[in-house]
Amino acid sequence: MFCLIPLTHNFKYLFYTIMSKKTGFLSSSIGKKFLMGLTGLFLVSFLVIHVTLNSFIFFNDGGVSYNAGADFMAHNPVIRILEIGLFAGLLLHIFQALLLTMENRKARPTPYEVVNGGANSSWYSRSMGILGSLLLLFLVVHLSNFWVPTKIAVFNHTEHNTFAGMKEVFAQWYFVVIYLVGVISLLYHLLHGFQSAFQSLGLNHKKYTPLIKKTGIWFSIIVCALFAAMPITMFLGIIK
């Protein structure tokens, strides 16, 4: 009992260290960037699972292994809890992005007449907001295509053939186009975001930073190539 009082006090202190509106870590410019990087890397870890599981369609076995994986993801309680964390992470990432963008706009009230941004930075590193917004729009389409029907099926305790749903969506050319735009946005968002997250977390090292940068580039290309291959192969009828 005795130790409980100082313990709550300690937690309160830690809470203020992180959350205090004026002096808390997360209210500072560095804290906000830290959270941006942390949630970004968390979302990257989700991409690994997502692309791995979806790649089951490339077994080309009529969706048997893919549906088994999708069924596991839809019903496993651990995944259900992680799903809440995923949405929380996504919302936090979006919320922080809006907050940072508004602050950054305010920091330059008079714009330049001439800006030669290409001379000092990549276009996609300067366009993370636009790329992220495209991704968000894509996510609305994507979730309504797959996530919502799956949820409805789980709620009604009915069987849901996710693979069949995928074939149905990717039979329409305009969905293929939307998905490719989404994947390209993801590619460039990741090309900057992956290595940028490590920098925001303070991880910059003579030996490891070049490795992180190369890993980031290959990760972005491989993940996005696999994602892009899904609607294309299905539309062309290669995956049956």
Partner: peptide, 22 residues
């Protein structure tokens, strides 16, 4: 120093690297 930087109304870093290049 970071507290003062934030109070002065500077923006937030997005790691574009433009500063280092210029």
């Amino acid at each position: 120093m970071v507290k003062q930087m934030d109070e002065e109304g500077f923006g937030n870093c997005t790691n574009t690297g433009a500063c280092e290049a210029e």
